[in-house]
Design a protein around this nucleic acid. Structure first.
Length: 245
DNA sequence: AACCCGTGGAA
DNA sequence: TTTCCAAGGGT
């Protein structure tokens, strides 16, 4: 839920989700449509599908994956999420690089970093033992002080940060664009993404007739969107009736 | 590497 | 009113 989504917006959804699915097995035993309904409002519904499929895989495994390799093999689990589970759930030694931490390291280094470089810096800096505390502190530093518009005066790294020592010039900020963690997005208003979201939202409330799709989504290339959602397994087509799978 | 994927709050 | 971007991942 936290992938590309602010924690304040996740918390109420997370509480409701765990109330409905207290265990992995509960989620695995449900229908994808139930998961998608609980996901409504969070965006990126493919994450809900990935979570649902991951729950199925873990349920079949019988044990929860607890190595980086095993976690990375799960759908929707990448470099950040796998390490987040390791450090925050299992309290194992793993350095997470989210958008906040990537920004901190880029500014400390004083130049733009590739994801590989940022992960290497994080790995080299990680104190062993209570690594989750380190990860949490660094993440919060990025979320509170080392913001896109920073508050350098209060930063504990102000004497060692290369960008700060260079004068903290916004034009020279090595962490523009979320330090490359999240990429610029195309226009949302009037886009097919918006239309897909409208259709999925309509389906959480019931079914939709194919003939009415254009009106529901207010988008010209309506049928292409239906096909895209069907291909992703987020929508099921029965005759001329659309419903959640 | 480049591009795609939802949604909503804040500036 | 736009624009930015948020505890990223997949192709």
């Amino acid at each position: 839920m936290l992938q590309q989504t602010q924690i304040a917006r996740v918390i109420p959804k997370w509480i409701a989700f765990l109330e409905r699915f207290p265990t992995v097995a509960d989620c695995a035993a449900a229908e994808l449509g139930d998961v998608l309904r609980l996901w409504q409002g969070l965006g990126y519904p493919r994450r809900a599908r990935n979570l649902y499929e991951a729950a199925g895989e873990i349920d079949r495994l019988g044990t929860f994956p607890d190595t980086l390799e095993q976690l990375l093999a799960l759908p929707g689990v990448g470099a950040y999420t796998a390490r987040a589970v390791l450090t925050f759930a299992f309290e194992a030694d793993a350095a997470v690089v989210d958008t906040n931490i990537a920004r901190v390291y880029a500014r400390v280094a004083g130049h733009r970093l590739t994801t590989t470089q940022a992960q290497a810096m994080a790995d080299a800096s990680l104190p062993l033992g209570d690594s989750w505390r380190w990860n949490q502190c660094l993440m919060d530093l990025g979320a509170t002080l080392c913001r896109p518009v920073p508050h350098c005066a209060d930063c504990p790294l102000r004497s060692t940060c290369a960008w700060q020592l260079a004068g903290c010039d916004p034009v020279l900020d090595p962490a523009v664009g979320s330090a490359g963690v999240s990429r610029p997005q195309s226009r949302f208003e009037g886009s097919e993404r918006q239309a897909r979201g409208r259709l999925l939202k309509a389906l959480t409330a019931g079914t939709v007739r194919v003939d009415d799709v254009s009106k529901v989504m207010q988008h010209p290339a309506a049928m292409r969107l239906v096909e895209a959602l069907c291909a992703e397994g987020l929508v099921r087509l029965e005759g001329k009736t659309l419903r959640l799978p």
